[in-house]
């Protein structure tokens, strides 16, 4: 589990949890509730370069599609195939088994531009 209290959040509802220069990323519990039953997740391929704030994955529910914006820049080094096979994992555990992929950060300082849990909570409620 990536304790949400220790994650950094983007305004667009993605979280990042850094260990060294690798960040695990996913969508917030608030976001999974808003999207409701997720039916499909399309992830970038390992090796892909992603850029902070740019769309790099897609989340679909029955009647909606949402872009996933990379919370930090870097190279995708691992993807969570489990959520591709079973997208309900994102609803069940947005900060656990429902993680999206891991990024080898090219600009770790970008983390500082993201919000902490308390700040995110106060914005996400609105």
């Amino acid at each position: 589990m990536y304790d949400e209290k220790n994650c950094r959040f983007a305004k667009s509802h993605e979280w990042a949890f850094a260990e060294g220069d690798v960040a695990t990323v996913g969508i917030s519990d608030y976001a999974q509730k808003e999207i409701s039953d997720i039916v499909f997740v399309e992830l970038p391929k390992a090796g892909a370069q992603v850029e902070q704030g740019k769309p790099c994955a897609v989340i679909e529910s029955v009647k909606a599609a949402a872009d996933f914006f990379a919370p930090v820049s870097g190279e995708v080094v691992a993807v969570n195939d489990a959520i591709v096979d079973n997208p309900a994992l994102v609803n069940q555990s947005a900060h656990g088994e429902g993680w999206f992929f891991k990024i080898k950060m090219s600009k770790p300082a970008e983390l500082e531009a993201l919000m902490d849990f308390a700040a995110y909570q106060s914005t996400a409620a609105h």
């Binding site: 499909f40 529910s61 009647k63 599609a65 872009d67």
Partner: peptide, 13 residues
């Protein structure tokens, strides 16, 4: 089914 692919949901995407 698989309607989230379609224009009425995705529009310009």
């Amino acid at each position: 089914t698989l309607q989230a692919r379609e224009q009425h949901i995705r529009r310009e995407r």
